[in-house]
Design a protein around this nucleic acid. Structure first.
Lengths: 107, 107
DNA sequence: TTATTATATATCAATTTTTGCATATAAGCG
DNA sequence: CGCTTATATGCAAAAATTGATATATAATAA
């Protein structure tokens, strides 16, 4: 059945620890790549690749602002699935080593 | 983070069309292997393989009854995730070619 | 202004690991 | 024995991961 394939594809996107961590962070607030890099402790290229997958699946949307690119969640379904499995979102994070506007201004 | 891995693993189990179809059917009512075989149109060995994965992940539980083995959903989380993504469950199915008690008695 | 350097992000290529699915076979029950 | 279910094995296809490199914007020096 075609429908199961579509749903399975969605779950497949979610079936990855780092993507899940990225989405978990994004549901708190939009974030740039370097922020997500600091949050996850993964190399930049790796994050960009995961973001591409999320972007292609239309789970996130990107917006350029100066030299940063900010990502945020696209739809509510993702948010609800995260709530269902991981509970409510916590407060925005300020990881060590992130130089994004949010992290520098709020510290 | 260990936690994301655990959640990702759950999503991973769900990220497969046939497993999803099996779970979708099981949320209507418990079912034996031959029933799921008829519902999905897949060979028996294949269904057994997928059921094993679902069993190992503790998403379903099996109970032997004569020469049949009936499977049902273990937990509510699965049910809720299915509701979230695919809507409410429909009425139990009676696929062509299934000779299980439910299908023969109710037809 | 132009040239240069730094920073942020994206893409490409190569390799290893995992998955999907079929076939064959075994085991348990009536 | 016949029927239902489970397991083992093999292999092609797909995905994960890593490293190298490309692009774009901003900052700074000449």
């Amino acid at each position: 059945m075609k429908n199961y394939k579509t749903k399975a594809d969605l779950f497949h996107i979610l079936s990855h620890p780092v993507r899940l961590q990225i989405l978990d962070d994004l549901r708190k607030r939009q974030a740039c790549v370097c922020h997500l890099q600091a949050v996850t402790g993964r190399p930049q290229a790796y994050i960009s690749q995961q973001l591409r997958i999320l972007r292609d699946a239309e789970l996130v949307i990107d917006e350029k602002d100066g030299q940063n690119v900010f990502y945020r969640l696209t739809c509510d379904l993702t948010r609800e699935l995260l709530n269902e499995t991981m509970g409510q979102a916590s407060a925005p994070s300020h990881p060590e080593g992130c130089t994004c506007p949010f992290c520098t201004n709020e510290k």
